[in-house]
């Protein structure tokens, strides 16, 4: 399974909380490592309920946004669901100007998505 040395993963009964502990997702190696590790989670957990907590992220590039789109598509193809949480107000414009705010489901805190996914299992 692909690993990423700055990705912290916790799994609870098919609900997977993934939190990159890195403030800048700009360089190609970091983006590839994170993307591969996230896609590996989709492969590992059937019908995954993925909570991607971006609370530590201060900057990310269009390349990283592209990888998040690929992740979203992989989750949907696996008949799973995905929440993006903790997005800082400073980087939210990146999602809005690219209209990805219409694609992803956002929650202010990971805990909110976790409670919702627990209340409504797939």
């Amino acid at each position: 399974m692909a690993t990423c040395d700055f990705l912290v993963v916790q799994a609870y009964d098919g609900i997977v909380l993934a939190r990159p502990e890195k403030d800048r997702l700009l360089d190609a190696a970091a983006i590839a490592s994170l993307s591969d590790a996230l896609i590996a989670l989709v492969d590992r957990y059937p019908r995954i309920s993925l909570i991607l907590d971006l609370g530590a992220v201060q900057a990310l590039s269009s390349a990283m946004l592209g990888k998040l789109v690929a992740l979203h598509k992989a989750v949907k193809a696996a008949k799973g669901r995905m929440a993006v949480t903790g997005v800082k107000t400073s980087i939210m414009p990146l999602f809005t100007v690219t209209r990805l705010d219409k694609v992803f489901e956002f929650f202010p805190e990971a805990q909110e998505a976790l409670l919702l996914y627990r209340r409504k299992p797939l």
Binding site: S61, S62, A63, L65, G66, K67, V69, A70, H72, K73, P93, L94, V97, T98, R99, L100, K102, V103
Partner: peptide
């Protein structure tokens, strides 16, 4: 074309839009 809904799920092509923001 970022305003074309068919391009919404492309995995590239967002950098120029971000810079222009």
């Amino acid at each position: 074309d970022p305003d074309d809904s068919s391009s919404l799920l492309l995995e590239h092509g967002r950098g120029i839009r971000i810079m222009r923001e």
